[in-house]
Design a protein around this nucleic acid. Structure first.
Lengths: 191, 191
DNA sequence: CCTGAAATAGAGTAAATACTCTAATCAATT
DNA sequence: AATTGATTAGAGTATTTACTCTATTTCAGG
């Protein structure tokens, strides 16, 4: 593993443990057993480390959330996708824990996050539209569909936060409850 | 206004603007035009200021979210409640922006928040059960009902965060879209 | 083996932070 | 006027933070 990757994975672990505000660059360097100077050789500043971790998150979404597009979609595709998404978010959990604060402090980060998020949302919406086309779901009026999508998206983004607030351990079973929550929203429209 | 209240309202304003990590006790004191020593006369430490603001939030929920219990409930009661709740959360918006981080740093705060939250959730659930009893909503199986409540609750807690991420201005119209999102969840069960 | 660039160590700095301490002031009561 | 307790100012402190600078080491290619 390159030193750059070591710094990033160590920072990720510490950020997830204690939050970005509580973890200093010196902490990260010490946890990596390297000097502060070395850390600043690899990263311009602390914000650059956070940005790089966001980039990793984007990459994880891109590579791990792809759909097999050679078959007609099934509901299981949706649940798989959502579950994988929860796993990714959990891996980078500091991001959603502090999301609003982090984005407010960094305009460029906000922009990149918004566009990545928009891509994800569009893909999600297309999947549901494929369900309708395939007769798995009833036709839905445009505005209603948009609202349903927004609700599902809200669940997928904030369900883990909700679990953490409730101090529930994040295990497959609790994560699955987030998946079934989303299915509950769509259920009245599933044939 | 007592000096204590001045400190709290100033701190609230600054926390909402910049986040708790970016606002120091010295900042607060300066913004109040008082000395740091004076601030520490009124509050043991920075955490105590945050705790006091949480108490104000609890109080706002208690006093402003009461239901008129002399008439059979109507759907408009629900929308009014949710709207008022959004206004309260917006007033103390730093709380939900940083919620997971704040609670993880302060065990006592976490406990008080959880119990207050539980009370609110129960009240909300009772209201919906009254709708069912009044024939406004169809009877719903227990597990389904619980899931619906959780979804609505998630929306009420995180909708403003979602708006902030989208950089949308928080206005009556955008807040109303949060209310109709919740109605969209319940709509299939409304008679 | 030499060279030079990349990588690293580690001391150092200016600023900020949470918080303390002491002395002064105020305001009400005796 | 004197006393007393609540309030306030403001200087001070130890620590931490993000980040810089310079000197040294590593190591691949000629």
């Amino acid at each position: 593993m390159s030193k750059r990757d070591l710094i990033l994975s160590t920072a990720l672990e510490l950020f997830n443990q204690k939050g970005t505000a509580e973890v200093s660059t010196n902490h990260i360097a010490e946890a990596c057993s390297i000097s502060p100077g070395n850390l600043y050789y690899h990263f311009r500043n602390k914000a650059a480390i956070i940005q790089a971790l966001f980039e990793q998150l984007y990459a994880a979404w891109d590579t791990e959330l792809s759909l097999p597009n050679d078959h007609t979609p099934q509901l299981s595709d949706l649940t798989n996708l959502v579950e994988t998404n929860y796993q990714i978010i959990w891996r980078y959990r500091f991001v959603y824990r502090e999301l609003v604060a982090l984005l407010r402090q960094d305009l460029a980060l906000h922009a990149s996050f918004l566009s990545t998020r928009q891509r994800g949302f569009s893909g999600f919406q297309q999947l549901v539209e494929q369900f309708i086309a395939a007769g798995i779901m009833r036709p839905i009026e445009a505005k209603t569909l948009d609202q349903l999508m927004q609700i599902c998206w809200l669940i997928s983004e904030f369900w883990l936060n909700n679990l953490e607030i409730q101090q529930q351990s994040i295990e497959p079973s609790t994560i699955n409850s987030g998946v079934s929550l989303m299915l509950r929203v769509l259920q009245p429209y599933i044939i």
